[in-house]
Design a protein around this nucleic acid. Structure first.
Lengths: 215, 215
DNA sequence: TAGATTGTTAATCGATTAACAATC
DNA sequence: TAGATTGTTAATCGATTAACAATC
């Protein structure tokens, strides 16, 4: 009822990038931009920008272009960055700890409320402003706090073993750094996979097959 | 001459995933699989698998399917994982350190040979089997060791400031965690971007607009 | 008003899926 | 040989680009 037609994932994935570029423009004191100018800065076509934005409504003005601040705010609202979702991290190893300290969750639409691990060495440690709890207390924590997003920084088999209960506990979305493919086993659940190894292997291929290098 | 037609990026990006699933099958003792079976495990169509693989040659056998080990080895070769490329990390902060300790570079086609940072606090520290050097010594290091891949775990402005000299020093590929868009300014250079913030924002949108939740 | 640039429709392009003949 | 499954061509689908009328 709120959404006439579902917006394609290709379009959605470009929104954060628009958001970043508009943020930069704002910082630089730019308050007006045409799809043409923006397209040149971002390395895509003006047509695509206009098509993308028009999935969500007409934010521009003929003959003028787009108001940078207004468009920036609009995209934040579309992405839903304004209302934070309660989030937990599962797996407080190197990667998990680095990720939660590296990113500013509150500005990205998330509110990190808990960190869990199964290692006694890590339980009790402080990460950012939170203390690592044992994963055994996860269920109780969820019943009390109802987090909806889980960041999975655990190995494949651990993720696989935990999946059922996570779904049971009501999680709606997963930011998945493990190699376990949640999206296949649990249909309708939103999963953003960050497969660092896959990304590296792709880089490997692309460098070795780059047409610009006459190799 | 080695490549008749360039393989599309969509196909290339699926290769690491095939590689992972085949690896799992091997571990499980499976030595033969049809595109149909594999497609069900991976959540895509059998047609797509056959199309993808046939970009690189005919690895199957009619009436039989694919030999798992042979296909696994073949994909490793296609990706170029067999010959490691000299790689350095620039930026030894939380994220940079976590990434290099988290991943097994040698199995992914890379040989990490140096780590650099501009902070005196980090220079001299040990990360994995390497010692962090000051970024001022980067140029000298490159002339001596000729690394071709750089992992960028530094802020946008630092990446921007460094870009010219990195290109100059002969880097062929970048694994980019910064928000600076190298690919726009340096055409023909291979860049794999890992935009964690973008991924999170996409997750935010998708959870809030998930048709499976009747919200 | 004239110029600029949007919103939107139509055309193109590429990627995915379906179909089936070839063949193990 | 009969059954199974590939390699490959053709059909479909979706995403990107181009064009242009609407309008600020």
């Amino acid at each position: 009822m709120t959404k006439p037609t579902a917006v394609s994932l290709s379009v959605v994935r470009r929104l954060p990038r628009y958001y970043r570029f508009l943020g930069e423009l704002l910082k630089g004191g730019c308050n007006r931009i045409s799809s043409k100018e923006l397209s040149e800065k971002m390395g895509l076509t003006a047509s695509q920008i206009r098509q993308d934005l028009n999935c969500f409504g007409g934010f521009g003005q003929q003959g003028y272009g787009y108001n940078v601040q207004a468009l920036y705010d609009e995209i934040a609202k579309i992405l839903g960055l304004d209302k934070q979702q309660k989030t937990i991290l599962i797996g407080a190893g190197n990667l998990g700890r680095a990720i939660v300290t590296h990113l500013d969750f509150s500005h990205l639409g998330f509110d990190l409320v808990g960190i869990f691990d199964n290692s006694d060495e890590l339980v009790g440690e402080t990460v950012g402003s939170l203390t690592v709890s044992h994963v055994d207390s996860l269920s109780e924590f969820c019943h009390e706090n109802s987090p909806v997003i889980a960041i999975l920084c655990i190995p494949k088999n651990a993720a696989e073993a935990l999946a059922d209960s996570l779904i049971e506990l009501g999680f709606k979305g997963f930011w998945n750094f493990s190699h376990y493919d949640l999206a296949i086993d649990y249909h309708g659940i939103v999963v953003e996979n960050v497969h660092l190894g896959d990304s590296l292997m792709t880089l490997c291929y692309r460098v070795k097959n780059n047409p610009s290098n006459n190799s």
